[in-house]
Design a protein around this nucleic acid. Structure first.
Ligand SMILES: [Mn+2]
Ligand SMILES: [Mn+2]
Ligand SMILES: [Zn+2]
Ligand SMILES: [Zn+2]
Lengths: 143, 143
DNA sequence: TTATCAAATGAGAACCGATGTCAAGACATG
DNA sequence: CATGTCTTGACATCGGTTCTCATTTGATAA
Protein backbone atom coordinates (compact mmCIF):
# COMPACT_ATOMS: atom_id res chain seq x y z
CA UNK A 1 0.00 0.00 0.00
CA UNK A 2 1.32 3.42 -0.98
CA UNK A 3 1.81 6.37 1.33
CA UNK A 4 -1.16 8.67 1.91
CA UNK A 5 0.79 11.38 0.13
CA UNK A 6 1.08 9.25 -3.00
CA UNK A 7 -2.50 8.08 -2.67
CA UNK A 8 -3.63 11.71 -2.66
CA UNK A 9 -1.41 12.62 -5.63
CA UNK A 10 -2.83 9.66 -7.56
CA UNK A 11 -6.35 10.78 -6.72
CA UNK A 12 -5.59 14.31 -7.92
CA UNK A 13 -3.96 13.04 -11.12
CA UNK A 14 -6.81 10.66 -11.87
CA UNK A 15 -9.26 13.55 -11.57
CA UNK A 16 -7.02 15.94 -13.50
CA UNK A 17 -6.55 18.19 -10.51
CA UNK A 18 -3.37 20.09 -9.74
CA UNK A 19 -0.98 19.12 -6.96
CA UNK A 20 -0.70 22.57 -5.44
CA UNK A 21 1.45 23.65 -2.54
CA UNK A 22 -1.70 24.40 -0.48
CA UNK A 23 -3.07 20.89 -1.00
CA UNK A 24 0.26 19.37 0.01
CA UNK A 25 0.38 21.45 3.18
CA UNK A 26 -3.21 20.74 4.21
CA UNK A 27 -2.60 17.01 3.76
CA UNK A 28 0.65 17.14 5.74
CA UNK A 29 -1.02 19.02 8.58
CA UNK A 30 -3.97 16.62 8.56
CA UNK A 31 -1.68 13.58 8.64
CA UNK A 32 0.20 15.16 11.53
CA UNK A 33 -2.89 15.22 13.70
CA UNK A 34 -4.58 12.48 15.66
CA UNK A 35 -8.23 12.14 16.58
CA UNK A 36 -11.21 14.01 15.21
CA UNK A 37 -10.67 17.54 13.92
CA UNK A 38 -12.90 20.26 12.54
CA UNK A 39 -11.96 22.43 9.58
CA UNK A 40 -11.58 25.32 11.98
CA UNK A 41 -9.02 23.36 14.00
CA UNK A 42 -7.20 22.19 10.89
CA UNK A 43 -7.14 25.76 9.59
CA UNK A 44 -5.51 26.92 12.83
CA UNK A 45 -2.75 24.35 12.37
CA UNK A 46 -2.39 25.08 8.67
CA UNK A 47 -2.03 28.80 9.41
CA UNK A 48 0.98 28.13 11.61
CA UNK A 49 2.69 26.46 8.66
CA UNK A 50 1.55 28.98 6.04
CA UNK A 51 -0.56 31.90 7.16
CA UNK A 52 -1.55 32.83 3.62
CA UNK A 53 -3.73 29.74 3.17
CA UNK A 54 -7.41 30.59 3.49
CA UNK A 55 -10.13 28.76 5.43
CA UNK A 56 -11.96 28.11 2.15
CA UNK A 57 -8.97 26.17 0.85
CA UNK A 58 -8.91 24.05 3.98
CA UNK A 59 -12.63 23.29 3.59
CA UNK A 60 -12.13 22.46 -0.08
CA UNK A 61 -9.01 20.38 0.42
CA UNK A 62 -10.12 18.26 3.37
CA UNK A 63 -13.14 17.32 1.28
CA UNK A 64 -10.82 16.12 -1.48
CA UNK A 65 -8.78 14.22 1.07
CA UNK A 66 -11.96 12.51 2.23
CA UNK A 67 -12.99 11.72 -1.34
CA UNK A 68 -9.56 10.18 -1.95
CA UNK A 69 -10.26 7.79 0.92
CA UNK A 70 -7.57 9.11 3.25
CA UNK A 71 -9.96 10.91 5.57
CA UNK A 72 -13.44 10.13 6.84
CA UNK A 73 -15.92 12.81 7.81
CA UNK A 74 -17.68 12.37 11.12
CA UNK A 75 -20.89 13.86 12.42
CA UNK A 76 -21.29 13.64 16.18
CA UNK A 77 -24.47 15.67 16.04
CA UNK A 78 -23.21 19.00 17.31
CA UNK A 79 -23.28 20.76 13.97
CA UNK A 80 -19.54 20.50 13.40
CA UNK A 81 -18.12 18.17 10.76
CA UNK A 82 -14.93 16.51 11.92
CA UNK A 83 -12.40 14.44 10.03
CA UNK A 84 -10.22 11.55 11.02
CA UNK A 85 -7.50 9.67 9.21
CA UNK A 86 -8.52 6.40 7.56
CA UNK A 87 -5.08 5.48 6.28
CA UNK A 88 -3.89 2.19 7.79
CA UNK A 89 -6.79 2.23 10.22
CA UNK A 90 -9.63 -0.24 10.69
CA UNK A 91 -13.25 0.84 10.67
CA UNK A 92 -14.61 1.73 14.10
CA UNK A 93 -17.56 3.41 15.78
CA UNK A 94 -17.72 5.80 18.71
CA UNK A 95 -18.96 6.19 22.25
CA UNK A 96 -19.48 9.89 23.00
CA UNK A 97 -19.67 11.35 26.51
CA UNK A 98 -22.47 13.90 26.75
CA UNK A 99 -20.75 15.56 29.73
CA UNK A 100 -17.12 16.02 28.65
CA UNK A 101 -17.36 15.15 24.93
CA UNK A 102 -14.74 12.44 25.33
CA UNK A 103 -14.89 9.98 22.48
CA UNK A 104 -14.00 6.31 22.77
CA UNK A 105 -13.35 4.28 19.64
CA UNK A 106 -14.95 0.85 19.53
CA UNK A 107 -15.30 -2.06 17.16
CA UNK A 108 -17.54 -5.08 17.55
CA UNK A 109 -17.46 -7.59 14.70
CA UNK A 110 -20.74 -9.21 15.71
CA UNK A 111 -22.55 -5.86 15.47
CA UNK A 112 -21.10 -5.27 12.04
CA UNK A 113 -22.22 -8.73 10.93
CA UNK A 114 -25.72 -8.23 12.28
CA UNK A 115 -25.96 -4.84 10.56
CA UNK A 116 -25.13 -6.53 7.27
CA UNK A 117 -27.70 -9.27 7.89
CA UNK A 118 -30.31 -6.71 8.85
CA UNK A 119 -29.77 -4.76 5.65
CA UNK A 120 -29.78 -7.96 3.62
CA UNK A 121 -33.14 -8.94 5.10
CA UNK A 122 -34.53 -5.70 3.66
CA UNK A 123 -32.70 -6.21 0.34
CA UNK A 124 -30.69 -3.13 1.15
CA UNK A 125 -27.15 -2.66 -0.15
CA UNK A 126 -25.22 -0.90 2.64
CA UNK A 127 -22.51 1.57 1.59
CA UNK A 128 -21.62 2.94 5.00
CA UNK A 129 -23.06 3.24 8.46
CA UNK A 130 -23.01 5.48 11.44
CA UNK A 131 -23.28 4.16 14.97
CA UNK A 132 -22.78 6.42 17.95
CA UNK A 133 -23.60 5.55 21.54
CA UNK A 134 -24.16 8.67 23.67
CA UNK A 135 -23.79 8.48 27.41
CA UNK A 136 -21.57 9.14 30.43
CA UNK A 137 -17.94 8.10 30.41
CA UNK A 138 -16.24 6.35 33.36
CA UNK A 139 -14.52 9.55 34.53
CA UNK A 140 -17.71 11.60 34.49
CA UNK A 141 -19.66 8.83 36.26
CA UNK A 142 -17.33 9.11 39.26
CA UNK A 143 -18.19 12.77 39.74
CA UNK B 1 -50.56 5.33 29.93
CA UNK B 2 -52.07 8.76 29.43
CA UNK B 3 -52.70 10.42 26.10
CA UNK B 4 -49.85 12.35 24.55
CA UNK B 5 -51.93 15.48 25.07
CA UNK B 6 -52.06 14.88 28.81
CA UNK B 7 -48.45 13.84 28.92
CA UNK B 8 -47.51 17.15 27.34
CA UNK B 9 -49.74 19.14 29.71
CA UNK B 10 -48.17 17.35 32.67
CA UNK B 11 -44.71 18.14 31.33
CA UNK B 12 -45.64 21.81 30.96
CA UNK B 13 -47.17 21.96 34.45
CA UNK B 14 -44.19 20.26 36.04
CA UNK B 15 -41.90 22.85 34.47
CA UNK B 16 -44.23 25.76 35.26
CA UNK B 17 -44.83 26.50 31.60
CA UNK B 18 -48.10 27.74 30.18
CA UNK B 19 -50.47 25.57 28.17
CA UNK B 20 -50.95 28.02 25.35
CA UNK B 21 -53.20 27.69 22.35
CA UNK B 22 -50.12 27.64 20.07
CA UNK B 23 -48.57 24.74 21.97
CA UNK B 24 -51.80 22.78 21.80
CA UNK B 25 -52.07 23.33 18.05
CA UNK B 26 -48.45 22.39 17.31
CA UNK B 27 -48.86 19.19 19.32
CA UNK B 28 -52.12 18.31 17.56
CA UNK B 29 -50.56 18.89 14.15
CA UNK B 30 -47.49 16.87 15.09
CA UNK B 31 -49.61 13.97 16.36
CA UNK B 32 -51.58 14.09 13.12
CA UNK B 33 -48.48 13.35 11.05
CA UNK B 34 -46.66 10.11 10.37
CA UNK B 35 -43.02 9.58 9.59
CA UNK B 36 -40.13 11.99 9.96
CA UNK B 37 -40.85 15.70 9.66
CA UNK B 38 -38.78 18.85 9.70
CA UNK B 39 -39.83 22.03 11.49
CA UNK B 40 -40.38 23.63 8.11
CA UNK B 41 -42.85 20.87 7.17
CA UNK B 42 -44.58 21.05 10.54
CA UNK B 43 -44.82 24.83 10.22
CA UNK B 44 -46.52 24.43 6.83
CA UNK B 45 -49.14 22.18 8.40
CA UNK B 46 -49.52 24.40 11.45
CA UNK B 47 -50.07 27.43 9.23
CA UNK B 48 -53.06 25.77 7.61
CA UNK B 49 -54.66 25.43 11.03
CA UNK B 50 -53.64 28.88 12.32
CA UNK B 51 -51.69 31.15 9.99
CA UNK B 52 -50.73 33.52 12.80
CA UNK B 53 -48.41 31.00 14.44
CA UNK B 54 -44.78 31.78 13.68
CA UNK B 55 -41.97 29.44 12.64
CA UNK B 56 -40.10 30.34 15.83
CA UNK B 57 -42.97 29.00 17.91
CA UNK B 58 -42.95 25.73 15.96
CA UNK B 59 -39.20 25.39 16.53
CA UNK B 60 -39.63 26.19 20.22
CA UNK B 61 -42.62 23.93 20.74
CA UNK B 62 -41.42 20.81 18.94
CA UNK B 63 -38.34 21.00 21.14
CA UNK B 64 -40.58 20.96 24.21
CA UNK B 65 -42.54 18.06 22.76
CA UNK B 66 -39.29 16.18 22.34
CA UNK B 67 -38.19 17.02 25.89
CA UNK B 68 -41.52 15.74 27.17
CA UNK B 69 -40.73 12.38 25.58
CA UNK B 70 -43.49 12.47 22.96
CA UNK B 71 -41.20 13.22 20.04
CA UNK B 72 -37.71 12.15 19.14
CA UNK B 73 -35.37 14.29 17.09
CA UNK B 74 -33.58 12.56 14.23
CA UNK B 75 -30.44 13.54 12.36
CA UNK B 76 -30.01 11.76 9.06
CA UNK B 77 -26.94 13.83 8.27
CA UNK B 78 -28.41 16.20 5.69
CA UNK B 79 -28.44 19.23 7.95
CA UNK B 80 -32.16 19.02 8.66
CA UNK B 81 -33.45 17.99 12.07
CA UNK B 82 -36.54 15.83 11.81
CA UNK B 83 -38.97 14.64 14.46
CA UNK B 84 -40.99 11.50 14.83
CA UNK B 85 -43.60 10.44 17.33
CA UNK B 86 -42.41 8.25 20.18
CA UNK B 87 -45.79 7.81 21.82
CA UNK B 88 -46.82 4.13 21.87
CA UNK B 89 -43.92 3.26 19.58
CA UNK B 90 -40.95 0.99 20.15
CA UNK B 91 -37.39 2.16 19.64
CA UNK B 92 -36.06 1.54 16.15
CA UNK B 93 -33.20 2.51 13.88
CA UNK B 94 -33.12 3.43 10.20
CA UNK B 95 -31.87 2.32 6.81
CA UNK B 96 -31.54 5.37 4.54
CA UNK B 97 -31.40 5.18 0.75
CA UNK B 98 -28.74 7.55 -0.59
CA UNK B 99 -30.51 7.66 -3.97
CA UNK B 100 -34.18 8.33 -3.15
CA UNK B 101 -33.93 9.16 0.57
CA UNK B 102 -36.40 6.41 1.43
CA UNK B 103 -36.14 5.43 5.06
CA UNK B 104 -36.82 1.95 6.37
CA UNK B 105 -37.41 1.42 10.08
CA UNK B 106 -35.62 -1.55 11.62
CA UNK B 107 -35.12 -3.14 15.00
CA UNK B 108 -32.72 -5.91 15.92
CA UNK B 109 -32.66 -6.95 19.57
CA UNK B 110 -29.28 -8.66 19.28
CA UNK B 111 -27.67 -5.45 18.05
CA UNK B 112 -29.20 -3.50 20.93
CA UNK B 113 -27.89 -6.10 23.38
CA UNK B 114 -24.41 -6.02 21.91
CA UNK B 115 -24.40 -2.23 22.02
CA UNK B 116 -25.17 -2.38 25.72
CA UNK B 117 -22.43 -4.97 26.30
CA UNK B 118 -19.97 -2.92 24.29
CA UNK B 119 -20.67 0.18 26.37
CA UNK B 120 -20.51 -1.85 29.57
CA UNK B 121 -17.08 -3.15 28.59
CA UNK B 122 -15.88 0.46 28.50
CA UNK B 123 -17.72 1.32 31.74
CA UNK B 124 -19.89 3.63 29.72
CA UNK B 125 -23.48 4.41 30.73
CA UNK B 126 -25.47 4.70 27.48
CA UNK B 127 -28.33 7.21 27.41
CA UNK B 128 -29.25 6.92 23.77
CA UNK B 129 -27.79 5.79 20.50
CA UNK B 130 -27.91 6.54 16.85
CA UNK B 131 -27.54 3.85 14.21
CA UNK B 132 -28.13 4.59 10.56
CA UNK B 133 -27.21 2.32 7.66
CA UNK B 134 -26.79 4.25 4.41
CA UNK B 135 -27.11 2.45 1.10
CA UNK B 136 -29.32 1.62 -1.88
CA UNK B 137 -32.89 0.49 -1.35
CA UNK B 138 -34.45 -2.45 -3.26
CA UNK B 139 -36.34 -0.17 -5.67
CA UNK B 140 -33.27 1.87 -6.55
CA UNK B 141 -31.16 -1.25 -6.98
CA UNK B 142 -33.44 -2.42 -9.76
CA UNK B 143 -32.78 0.71 -11.79
C1' DT C 1 -64.37 38.65 37.86
C1' DT C 2 -60.64 41.48 37.39
C1' DA C 3 -55.84 42.89 38.28
C1' DT C 4 -51.31 41.55 38.15
C1' DC C 5 -47.05 40.02 36.30
C1' DA C 6 -44.15 36.53 34.65
C1' DA C 7 -44.06 33.85 30.64
C1' DA C 8 -44.85 33.21 25.67
C1' DT C 9 -45.36 35.06 21.23
C1' DG C 10 -44.44 37.15 16.38
C1' DA C 11 -41.32 39.66 13.70
C1' DG C 12 -37.20 39.99 12.17
C1' DA C 13 -32.21 40.22 13.15
C1' DA C 14 -28.34 37.44 14.19
C1' DC C 15 -25.75 33.31 14.25
C1' DC C 16 -22.44 30.07 12.23
C1' DG C 17 -20.56 26.33 9.69
C1' DA C 18 -20.30 25.84 5.19
C1' DT C 19 -20.51 27.02 0.18
C1' DG C 20 -20.59 30.19 -3.81
C1' DT C 21 -18.53 34.01 -6.61
C1' DC C 22 -14.95 35.98 -9.05
C1' DA C 23 -10.72 38.44 -10.20
C1' DA C 24 -5.93 37.42 -9.56
C1' DG C 25 -2.47 34.01 -9.39
C1' DA C 26 -0.39 29.29 -9.99
C1' DC C 27 0.14 24.93 -12.28
C1' DA C 28 0.60 21.51 -16.18
C1' DT C 29 1.47 20.87 -20.87
C1' DG C 30 3.93 21.69 -25.06
C1' DC D 1 8.61 30.70 -21.88
C1' DA D 2 3.66 31.01 -23.51
C1' DT D 3 -0.80 29.28 -23.12
C1' DG D 4 -5.11 28.03 -21.09
C1' DT D 5 -7.19 25.97 -17.34
C1' DC D 6 -7.41 25.21 -12.53
C1' DT D 7 -6.99 26.96 -8.02
C1' DT D 8 -6.76 30.42 -4.79
C1' DG D 9 -7.95 34.24 -1.26
C1' DA D 10 -11.22 37.52 -0.12
C1' DC D 11 -15.56 38.16 0.76
C1' DA D 12 -20.50 37.58 -0.01
C1' DT D 13 -24.11 34.43 0.60
C1' DC D 14 -26.67 30.54 2.19
C1' DG D 15 -30.02 27.96 5.23
C1' DG D 16 -31.46 25.98 9.36
C1' DT D 17 -31.82 27.49 13.70
C1' DT D 18 -31.59 30.58 17.65
C1' DC D 19 -31.80 35.10 19.70
C1' DT D 20 -33.87 39.71 20.88
C1' DC D 21 -37.37 42.41 22.31
C1' DA D 22 -41.76 44.87 22.34
C1' DT D 23 -46.34 43.16 22.68
C1' DT D 24 -49.69 39.85 24.12
C1' DT D 25 -51.27 36.04 26.77
C1' DG D 26 -52.18 32.84 30.47
C1' DA D 27 -51.87 31.55 35.48
C1' DT D 28 -52.58 33.10 39.90
C1' DA D 29 -54.30 35.85 43.45
C1' DA D 30 -57.18 39.52 44.94
MN1 LIG E 1 -12.57 7.77 15.46
MN1 LIG F 1 -38.41 6.31 12.37
ZN1 LIG G 1 -17.11 12.29 30.18
ZN1 LIG H 1 -33.95 4.31 -2.94
Amino acid sequence: MSSPQNQFLEYLAKNKMAATEQRRIVLEVFLGTQGHHSCEELYAHVSKRDSSISPATVYRTIKLIAESGIAESLDFGDGITRFECRHDREHHDHLVCIRCNRRIEVMEDRIEELQEKLACKHEFEVHRHKMILYGICPDCRKQ
